[in-house]
Design a protein around this nucleic acid. Structure first.
Lengths: 136, 136
DNA sequence: ATAACACTTTAAGTATACTTGAAGTCAAGG
DNA sequence: CCTTGACTTCAAGTATACTTAAAGTGTTAT
């Protein structure tokens, strides 16, 4: 089975060695075996786990909830409802957040456009447009 | 001109009084006038500013950059390009992030579906489906 | 008058997620 | 042999964004 050094993992995921050790320490990564030099040896399993962690991280799931998720996962029979609940909650939260951010993106885009107009008026010595009106 | 107490602002935006004082302290909110009791008196201007702050906050712009933005805004003539740069960078970053999060949302949704299936198989004593395969 | 209430200031504390520093181990190369 | 490089541990430090505690002020209610 193919294995990976900590360096290979850091380049694969743009994570620092410290972060990987930290994730292991807090329990996000399960037991990482060591080679004869006591150095960490990562496997495909770890890679999958890190992908999950980063997916959760990008979407704003805190480490505490990731830990819950993985603990449910490791004892699935007794946590079927818990795991579904946790994931569904996160999914719902995320959908709301995406909607919010998309509205905010529009606002920001309108600000960019506004300042482009202001710049133009400024360069042409014409009138400066009214300030962009924030409507939430 | 209509004015607002700190309490009114907190209920309007679901922010704590401390947060509002903190925002003022770090310079996110410009000079807040006081009444005879030395209590803060907020105006429509502050409300607009808070809306901007919260928009930036939701989209992940750190306070340090908000401060830059507002300082550029208060001396626009000399910062036309700076303000456009800052906003455009944020806009680009945000678009990338939304795409990322939408992919992640899909993954999470698939996990939810997977565990629903697992639950079903478990209840019906049928076979448990293969683990959902994470493809980034 | 005295207590309650709504604010005030200042400094210190908290949460989250890392990051850094110091000191040590081990195999390989000059 | 001794240095270099890549790791190791463990504890302490950092960044960001608040939050809380302690002590005080001024108007209102009993």
């Amino acid at each position: 089975m193919k294995t990976y050094t900590i360096q290979e993992i850091t380049t694969l995921f743009s994570l620092s060695p410290s972060t990987l050790r930290y994730y292991e320490q807090v329990g996000l990564l399960p037991k990482v075996e060591r080679n004869s030099k006591k150095q960490r040896v990562y496997t495909q399993e770890h890679i999958c786990r890190i992908q999950s962690i980063l997916c959760f991280k990008r979407t704003g799931l805190p480490i505490s909830k990731m830990l819950k998720f993985f603990s449910y996962e490791s004892n699935l029979e007794n946590n079927m409802d818990n795991i579904i609940q946790l994931l569904s909650d996160h999914e719902v939260m995320l959908k709301v957040k995406i909607e919010e951010i998309q509205k905010d993106l529009l606002h920001i885009h309108q600000k960019v456009e506004y300042y482009h107009k202001v710049k133009q008026s400024f360069e042409e010595h014409t009138e400066i447009p009214c300030f962009y009106n924030f409507k939430s």
